[in-house]
Design a protein around this nucleic acid. Structure first.
Lengths: 208, 208
DNA sequence: TGACTGATGTCAGCAACCGCCTTCATGATG
DNA sequence: CATCATGAAGGCGGTTGCTGACATCAGTCA
């Protein structure tokens, strides 16, 4: 599935089939989806693609990671979006523009895959923990990138967190059965909602 | 340390010392702080207060939980703040008011305890994962409470997430060495920053 | 008194994860 | 061509987190 760029260099039988990581990831998702995360053992996943448990843990730092490994491209796209935003943009504008750029990583074809993956995660709290950890890490990285662009604290952290929140809400909507809009469109709508929510505040008193 | 409300009802020797949970939590924090989280085994913690590993896992769903159990009061205070906010308030105003109320849970005396606890968490990524999970759960609960007050989606989720973000930033600052301001004051400042960040956006185009 | 409950201990066991060592293809190097 | 370094995998054994099933024992209540 998806970006499983299996490198079949030659017709020769090599000692090891290439793409061990990708094969494990695909097998794991399938097994998790059918039998559940806890019911599936790392050894089972490994054996189902002709590898050993030890190899599994060499390739993934822990069992959950098999579902999360390889999102560097996504993160990088986000950072590129931040770095490439126009000069005079405000922190949230920078984030909004990065958000739009990142949407390209989720074309309509991915919806089905993303859905089953998310269904697995939603059914297990340990996996939700890992997902939230990754998102939080993403927010940190974005905040640093903003900082590098001269945005001060706490504005950088606030803007970064807002961005990942918007993305999370939009993504959840994109996944939803029957949803037809593109991720970019949904993101734009959620972002406008955020501005609206923030705009409805009557600032009480200003500190001295 | 801190709120280890050991209830020594009578001078009698009872079969079991009361407050097993609290004793375990205090011992765990101390051991984690001195020896590190991974280096400390659940059996060690239990034995250090005269209990067995099995009892530890009966009282805490897993090893990490010993550092997070018992924040119901905090959560409840947050919910009360949401429920008790004035009638015509906007979502973010409701959250801001709840935020102020919750600050009372962190008087100056707690700073030292909170610092060592946070230091332990910051040194271990598994603990960070759990913490983020809890915060995310808090955000969900707040969003539901907002929903119950009639706030629609995605405004409820956005406001709730913004609130926990503000709290997180403020708390981190409150913990910082040399910081003297109250948590409520810091929260107010961060909140104003959030409004400022949101206010600096030039809305581009409106969807049809 | 005796059944009952609640908090704990004991024991056995699985699965996650890791350190250490071995094996074997490949490509570079002399 | 021989050899050697490298990297990717398997094998083995051990620690620890966590659980289920069952025993124990103090205090309670009928």
């Amino acid at each position: 599935m998806m970006a499983v760029a299996v490198i079949t260099r030659l017709g020769f039988m090599t000692r090891w089939e290439p793409g061990a990581r990708e094969r494990l990831q695909a097998a794991a998702l399938e097994l998790f989806a059918t039998s559940g995360f806890e019911q599936t053992t790392a050894a089972e996943i490994a054996q189902s693609v002709g590898l050993t448990e030890r190899t599994f843990f060499r390739l993934f730092s822990d069992k959950r990671e098999v579902l999360f490994y390889g999102q560097d491209l996504f993160l990088q796209a986000f950072l590129d979006g931040v770095a490439g935003a126009p000069g005079g943009a405000s922190p949230l504008e920078i984030v909004a523009s990065a958000l739009q750029g990142v949407a390209a990583f989720f074309p309509a074809e991915r919806r089905s895959y993303a859905r089953t993956r998310q269904a697995v995660i939603d059914r297990n709290s340990a996996l939700q923990e890992r997902e939230r950890h990754k998102v939080a890490g993403l927010a940190n990285t974005i905040a640093e990138a903003l900082h590098a662009r001269g945005v001060e604290e706490p504005a950088a952290t606030l803007a970064a967190a807002s961005g990942t929140t918007v993305f999370g809400i939009a993504f959840a909507q994109w996944i939803r059965e029957g949803e037809e809009r593109s991720l970019a469109d949904i993101e734009a709508g959620v972002f406008r909602e955020l501005l609206k929510v923030a705009g409805e505040v009557t600032v009480l008193e200003k500190s001295p």
